[in-house]
Write a protein that binds this DNA or RNA. Structure first.
Length: 229
DNA sequence: AACCAGGACGTGA
DNA sequence: TCACGTCATGGT
């Protein structure tokens, strides 16, 4: 007789999303696109750096805008640490303009590339990243999870919307409270954390845009049906 | 033509 | 601590 494994809700939601959308293969790189099931990415220091740059550029902006900026940087050979560090400030501003907030983000990229150079092959701590101007909790966790392969769960606006709709969190809960709630109910596993966040984004793009009716979310419908019975 | 997108920071209460 | 204004482009 096989024992039934007790799974947490958090894990069940993950399984549900994975069966709905399949592997997402984040983080996308300009050259390689989505890596799909090759979880050894990123392999080179340059790829790690590109992911970090993307994490800064995508702050409050759609990824399609970020791609334009990344392609501009690639053309200028500035998707490498040294390349970006060498780039003139005005040139950098122009290149990342499509990603919005280009004045702030220019400073943030310059500051970060210096940090990245000094980092060497070391993995930074979360606090270390948070102490850098322009890197908040979500950006830090994105870098840790996708660039440095540390199982640090990312809480973005979509994560909040979905978990709020599923009544697993409250409206007022802080970033860190939501993060630790999820992490205590999900074994630390880089692959799963990576997929989970990507799946949340995929799911949210389909059901949790502000213009949509969030009650159409199939996960929510399942729950509300159970309650009705 | 407003509104929103894979946030973070500075300010004042 | 925390609510609020600010930063800016591109798509719908």
């Amino acid at each position: 007789m096989i024992k039934k494994i007790l799974m947490t809700k958090i894990r069940l939601i993950y399984d549900e999303l994975l069966s709905l959308y399949g592997h997402q293969g984040w983080w996308p790189l300009i050259e390689h696109g989505y890596h799909l099931k090759q979880y050894n990415f990123p392999t080179t220091n340059q790829q790690k750096f590109e992911i970090c740059i993307g994490a800064i550029l995508t702050q409050n902006v759609s990824w399609t805008n970020v791609e334009k900026a990344l392609i501009n940087l690639k053309k200028l050979n500035a998707l490498t640490v040294k390349g970006l560090d060498k780039l003139e400030e005005e040139e950098l501003k122009t290149a990342i303009k499509p990603a919005g907030y280009y004045n702030q983000k220019t400073n943030r990229l310059k500051t970060f590339s210096k940090f990245f150079i000094n980092l060497g092959n070391r993995v930074p701590t979360r606090d270390e990243l948070l102490s850098i101007n322009g890197i908040g909790p979500e950006t830090a966790d994105s870098m840790l999870l996708y660039s440095f392969k540390v199982p640090s769960f990312i809480v973005d606006a979509y994560t909040k919307r979905i978990f709020l709709q599923l009544k697993l969190i409250k409206e007022t809960e802080s970033y860190d409270a939501i993060k630790s709630f999820i992490e205590t109910n999900l074994n630390p596993d880089v692959k799963i954390y990576q997929e989970y966040h990507a799946l949340i984004v995929a799911h949210a793009k389909k059901y949790y845009q502000k213009k949509y009716d969030q009650t159409l979310c199939p996960l929510y419908q399942k729950i509300s049906q159970k309650i009705a019975k």
